[in-house]
Design a protein around this nucleic acid. Structure first.
Lengths: 244, 244
DNA sequence: GCCGATTTGTCCGTATGTATC
DNA sequence: CGATACATACGGACAAATCGG
C-alpha cells in the first residue's frame, strides 16, 4: 500500500505505460478524465504526471495533452538509476549480484582523507573496499567511507550483504539525496587485478564519486565507485528549461 | 522578467543560496515566512523549493524546516548540466568556446543508420561532425543527426555558431527533453587526431548518446558526444525514493 | 480570422495529516 | 500537550495554447 494517493496514481500510470497499454506517441487521457477515473483532485493528477515527465515517460503539451514517449529499451548492460544499493539495482536489472569485502577498517580522517572525502579532519570513519559481481563477473570496485557516528555497528558481514538495508531497517536512517560526479580515470593496479582488466585493452574506467546525505542533514557517506568500462551504462532524462 | 511567479522565487532563493546569504546547514525561512516575504500562496513557495531540492541545493525535513546543503564547488573542469548547447555551457562555465565544422552532409537513413540513431529507414537527415574547443583546447567531438523535416535550413555557418539558437529563435522549435546514455568507449583514429589524444596515455573517452525531442513529440536529434576523458565531468543530484 | 470547447499551466485559499520540538 | 513545520489533498479561478467549426 503506497502512503500517498499521487504516488499510487504515478505507479499505476507508469505500469500502464510500461505494459504498453498506451501506444508510443499516443495521448494519455486528459487530466479531467483522470480526475474522474481516480476520483481525486486535478492537483493530485498533476503531481503524478509531473513525475512521469521527469522520468522521461511522457511529455506534456499545453492545449493538447500528455503524450507517451516511453520506449522499452533492450538492456544490454548494467543500468544505473537514482540512489540504489548494488543489491537493489541487481534485482531491478534481473541479475544475480554478489559482493566481496576486500578491506574493512576504522580510521580517523587526516588532512589528506578530509580533502578527498569532504569529512572534517578528525572524523571517525569506516573504510570499506568491496568488489561487486554481477552474474559472477566482477564489475565494480567500491571505496566507501561511512561516518561512524551515523553508521555505527557496521561489520564486514553487513557489508557483504547490504549496507543500505542495515542503515535503513536496523538503524532507521532515512537516506535523502546524493550528489554525484561522473568522470573517467586511468585504471590502477587494484582495478586491474580485481576487475580482471587488461591495460592493453581498456586503460580507463568510469568513476562515480558521491556524497550522500541523510535526513539529519549530515553527509554520512563518501563513495567512489569504479566501474568496468565495457559494462558501464548510465541513463538519464534531461528537461530543457528556459535559458534564464 | 520570468514568466511565472514560482520561477522568480526559485531563482531568487537559488541566488541567495549561491551567494551564501544562508550558511551551509542553516535552515531557510519557513514556508509561512516565505509566503509573507514573497506575497504568494504556500503552493507557489513549495514549487520553488521543490526545484531547489531536485537541484540538490536544499533538503526538506517534515516538522523541522528546509536546510541549505549547497556547497560552492571548485570547478576544475568542464561541467555538464541539463540540456544545453555547447555555447550555453561555455558561457555558464565562464570559458571561451569555439566550434569547427568537420563535416556537413545530407543523407538518407539506411538500415545501419536507423539502428544506430533510432530514426526510421528512409528519413532525410543532416549529418554534422563538429569539434568543440574550450579556451582553444579541443574537448569534444560531436556527431549530430538532425531530422531534416524538423531542422530544415541548417547550414555549416549555423552549425559553427549554435544550432539550438537557430532551432529555437529562427524555426521557433521548442526543445523539450533528452534521453541520454553515458558510456565509456575506446578511442577511434578520428578522436585521436582531433582531440589530440595519445593512445598510450588515455585509450578511452566518455561518450554521451542522446535522443532529443521537441514539443511536437518528434525525436528530431540523435547525437553522440565524445569527450576528452581528462576534462570530462558530469554532475548529478539523485533523490532517494521508497523502494516501492 | 474569429469564436468556443478542450487541455494544460499558474495561482490561490483552505483543510487535514504527520513529524519535530 | 500545544505550537510550529512540512506533506498531502481538495476545489476553484483564470491564463495560455490548441483545435475544430
Amino acid at each position: 500500500m503506497p502512503k500517498s494517493k499521487y504516488e499510487f496514481i504515478y505507479k499505476d500510470l507508469k505500469q500502464k505505460i510500461e505494459s504498453e497499454e498506451y501506444a508510443y506517441q499516443e495521448l494519455l487521457p486528459s487530466e479531467n478524465q483522470l480526475v474522474l477515473a481516480y476520483n481525486c483532485s486535478r492537483n493530485t493528477i498533476r503531481r503524478a504526471v509531473g513525475r512521469l515527465v521527469t522520468d522521461g515517460y511522457v511529455q506534456t503539451m499545453q492545449g493538447k495533452g500528455v503524450r507517451n514517449i516511453y520506449r522499452p529499451v533492450a538492456q544490454t548492460s548494467y543500468t544505473i538509476g537514482g540512489i540504489e544499493s548494488f543489491k537493489e539495482s541487481s534485482i531491478r536489472n534481473h541479475k544475480k549480484g554478489r559482493s566481496v569485502v576486500l578491506q574493512f577498517m576504522e580510521l580517523t580522517a587526516d588532512e589528506k582523507i578530509s580533502r578527498r572525502t569532504g569529512f572534517p579532519v578528525g572524523s571517525e570513519l569506516y573504510y570499506i573496499q568491496r568488489l561487486h559481481f554481477l552474474d559472477e563477473k566482477p564489475l565494480i570496485i567500491n571505496h566507501n567511507y561511512f561516518l561512524k557516528s551515523a553508521a555505527c555497528g557496521l561489520t564486514p558481514e553487513i557489508a557483504e550483504n547490504s549496507i543500505y538495508e542495515y542503515l535503513e531497517n536496523t538503524l532507521h536512517m532515512t537516506i535523502v539525496n546524493s550528489k554525484r560526479v561522473m568522470t573517467v580515470e586511468k585504471i590502477t593496479q587494484i582495478d586491474e587485478k580485481y576487475l580482471e582488466l587488461d591495460v592493453n585493452d581498456y586503460n580507463c574506467l568510469a568513476v562515480i564519486t558521491s556524497h550522500t546525505y541523510n535526513s539529519d542533514g549530515v553527509m554520512f557517506e563518501f563513495t567512489q565507485s569504479r566501474h568496468r568500462p565495457d559494462y558501464f551504462r548510465f541513463q538519464d532524462n534531461a528537461v530543457r528549461r528556459s535559458v534564464s
